[in-house]
Design a protein around this nucleic acid. Structure first.
Lengths: 148, 148
DNA sequence: AATTATAGTAAACCTACTTTACCTTTTTGC
DNA sequence: GCAAAAAGGTAAAGTAGGTTTACTATAATT
């Protein structure tokens, strides 16, 4: 086996991009599964795009869409789905008849708190696996890479 | 603002899962863009699922599908697309009339080499941003997390 | 008052798949 | 050595998670 073909094989298994992807998928799957266990089994990963971008005081659809980086049409659909499921409320603005105010319902806030709990659990697990300081280091390195 | 709501806001911005996701997306986008610059502009991220799982000696469709973690139907489609684009060759097995051998063409091997080059470029950039030892540390921490 | 911009919706389309169902060929077990 | 099961592959329909294009209604600008 030549040096290059050995390198090519190594590339495909040990690629840093793949590690990122794999880590992201592991996190998502675990987080979603823990959230489901807590009684919010009708939430998909896609739904969290809304939930994690809606501010506690409420937002317009376009605002959330921009924050989430998707089109307002896609966000509009998400809003309708999560409204049906009872996680958010959609009320027409009294000052602007074109726009709606999207807000968490009680259940939505419960889900948000559960998500926070789940986050703490996973972070604790990561700290146990890597050690406290290494877990912090990992976060810092990622942040530094992304900020660039 | 209460402690909890501050925490909830912090969660949504600084979540480790999001950092993974963001890092993965940045890597993919840059890698694909560099690959396109090198003359392989008809390859999408989806196509790399085949390319990065096909061994240099060739494989069956089912084998690649399993390695990639997708169905053989999906892989079959990918194979047809990349065959049309000239990156792979699909020949019937002489010993098993059900099966095909999927292999890189010359162009496919060129693309693979270009992908390796791109990988080195991005890794070098990461090492410049974080420092050599930190870049290594990042990889190790991710690996450790994933292996768990 | 007319133009332009903004909020949102509708419908068609696209990518990246999975599911169900099927055909053909090979392997296994009796 | 033959029937049943397993394996390789394809076809077609369905699904998730979107985008694009086009539109309506309202608000802001000049």
């Amino acid at each position: 086996m030549t040096k290059l073909s050995k390198d090519l094989i190594e590339m495909r298994d040990n690629n840093i991009g793949r590690l990122f992807q794999h880590a992201a998928r592991c996190y998502s799957e675990q987080a979603l599964s823990l959230l489901h266990e807590r009684g919010f089994s009708d939430i998909s990963l896609y739904h969290t795009v809304l939930i994690s971008n809606l501010s506690s005081t409420g937002d317009q659809i376009t605002t959330i869409a921009d924050k989430a980086g998707i089109t307002k049409q896609a966000m509009g659909q998400l809003v309708n789905e999560l409204e049906k499921k009872g996680y958010i409320r959609k009320t027409q603005s009294p000052v602007d008849k074109r726009s709606y105010l999207i807000q968490f319902t009680e259940r939505g806030q419960d889900a948000l708190r559960a998500a926070y709990e789940v986050k703490l659990i996973i972070e604790k697990e990561y700290a146990e696996i890597l050690g406290e300081s290494n877990a912090k280091k990992l976060r810092n390195l990622l942040q530094k890479l992304i900020n660039h």
